[in-house]
């Protein structure tokens, strides 16, 4: 089955790329954009038919590798 993970910076952690994107959007025709936070996602194909087991495994992956919990949060979809 396929599991999607979204990793984003925690609230309050400086996101200079998001800031640069927001300023660029403001300079285009999107003056009403007040904040952009950039993140990343992973599509993980896992050979496991039990959804609960698969998601538990993906949770371990997030904690051990995919996200750095000092600055990032993860969401498993």
């Amino acid at each position: 089955m396929k599991v999607r993970v979204i990793v984003t910076l925690k609230n309050g952690v400086l996101d200079p790329q998001g800031k640069a994107i927001q300023q660029t959007l403001n300079g285009m025709t999107f003056g009403n954009v007040s904040e952009v936070r950039q993140g990343k996602y992973f599509d993980i194909e896992i050979n496991e038919s039990d959804e609960i087991k698969a998601k538990l495994q993906v949770e371990e992956m997030c904690k051990k590798l995919l996200a750095n919990l000092v600055i990032e949060d993860y969401k498993i979809l």
Partner: peptide, 9 residues
């Protein structure tokens, strides 16, 4: 801690 991208990119 962690080393993040430089403040001014």
């Amino acid at each position: 801690g962690i080393l993040q991208q430089n403040k001014y990119l």
